[in-house]
Computed example of a mutant assay.
Amino acid sequence: MADGGMEVLDGTQLRDLDLQLPILDYPVSGAMALQLAESETSARLFGLSLPENIRSGALHRISASDDPDLLSKEFGDADCLSSMIQEFLIAVADQLKDDPLVISVLDGKALRIFLDDEDDFAMLAENLFTELDTDDNGKLSKNDIANALLHMGVQLGVPPIQESTNLLSNIIKKHGAEGEEKLGQAQFANLLQTILQDLTDALSEKHVTVVRDVKVINGSKLKKTLENQKLFNEFVEKLFLEWNAYKNGQEDMELRGFFEARGLESGLPPSESNEALYDRIFSDIDKGNVAGDLEKDAFQVIVKDILEKFAQHLEENPIFIDLEG
């Protein structure tokens, strides 16, 4: 996977439960067991440290089905420890199935492509210089090198500062790219090139995994609603009340507009970028039943049909929504 390329973590990477535990002295404390479980999880997820919401959600799932105070337990043998780690892996996998993460593994390849092409790098450096030279005086300070790296971002293979504080800061310090000393465009480009070369070498030796601000709409939320009768009934009840308020006495108000307005709230993709999908799904719904007054039972049947069609399509063709700007 090249820099900037995206990988979806949906839990499938964790469902192989073949563990290779280190040689340990038993018993093992709950804290140590959790540390081993998180290490095993990270190793299977490209070195990613679990976001706190995924970690705490997985612990809650384990606690709900077993001992509510995992950290106070002791694991007396390898089988008990292995069972706990397997439970943790499955719990994280279930969390990721419901709410997938999108990541990029930065390994220096994308940066190498820019550095190996003189014309591409010259254009990149020129564009960055122009963008940062807000005073239009043809000079930038050395401090602006950090801003240039920030502008390049994950899409061009540069890790965020918070993901690699020591890596980037050490490289910047190594080349004296700090302070208010002014640089012309050529000097700026030369310094940036040197720093990017070092960053490329560092990333090739130790990859940096970055969670992207990208939402995956894959039908999992819809399937969860459809598979739980209580949840589905509550969903329909709330939707039916909103539907009657939405149409507000307008006999020709169509359900399509109502569902388009719900969008992500209901687990549906945004309509503005998926008109063809909405066209196809709502063209399959009986035209005589999608407008005007609807009894609750008829409304429930139609809603179920709509959700099933969306869920099937999204499971086969997930939609990615870029929230990064």
Rank of each mutant, 00 (worst) to 15 (best):
Q86T: 10
H313S: 09
N274E: 04
F75K: 07
N143R: 10
L34P: 14
V105G: 07
L196P: 09
V158Q: 02
S220T: 07
L140K: 08
I161V: 12
E242N: 15
I145F: 02
L140M: 10
G325S: 07
S141Y: 01
K215Y: 08
L115C: 11
R112E: 14
S49N: 01
S39H: 06
K296W: 01
I172C: 12
R61K: 12
P22N: 00
S39M: 09
Q197G: 15
V8G: 15
N289Y: 12
K223S: 03
K173Q: 15
G325D: 01
R256C: 01
L199K: 05
G138I: 06
Q300A: 15
F235A: 14
A291N: 02
N228A: 10
I306C: 09
N228C: 01
D16Q: 13
D119H: 11
K247N: 10
D322F: 11
L45R: 09
G179K: 05
N244Q: 08
A291V: 10
G153F: 07
D252T: 12
F240L: 07
Q95H: 00
V105S: 13
I319V: 09
G138F: 03
M123S: 10
N228P: 08
R262E: 12
D201I: 13
L19V: 11
G108Q: 14
T165I: 11
Q193N: 08
G288H: 04
E163I: 01
E295M: 12
E260T: 07
V154E: 03
S283N: 01
D94Y: 06
G219Y: 12
D117M: 00
V154P: 08
N228Y: 02
A261K: 13
K309T: 10
H313P: 04
T130N: 13
D120E: 05
H175C: 05
I54S: 05
D25K: 15
F282H: 07
L168S: 06
L167W: 05
F114E: 07
K109G: 06
I103Y: 05
E180I: 03
L140E: 04
G57Q: 09
G249I: 04
A202H: 11
A125S: 14
L203M: 09
H175N: 10
A261T: 03
H175P: 03
L192W: 08
K287W: 04
N147M: 02
F75P: 09
F114Y: 15
F320L: 14
M123W: 08
S72L: 02
Q229M: 00
G11K: 02
E234G: 14
E52Y: 06
I321Y: 11
L183D: 06
N127C: 04
E40G: 14
H313A: 06
F188S: 10
F188K: 11
H151N: 15
V216Y: 09
L203D: 04
V28W: 03
H60N: 11
L222H: 04
D322S: 12
E295W: 13
H151T: 11
E295H: 14
K206G: 08
F46P: 01
L314M: 09
F232G: 11
E181D: 12
G30P: 08
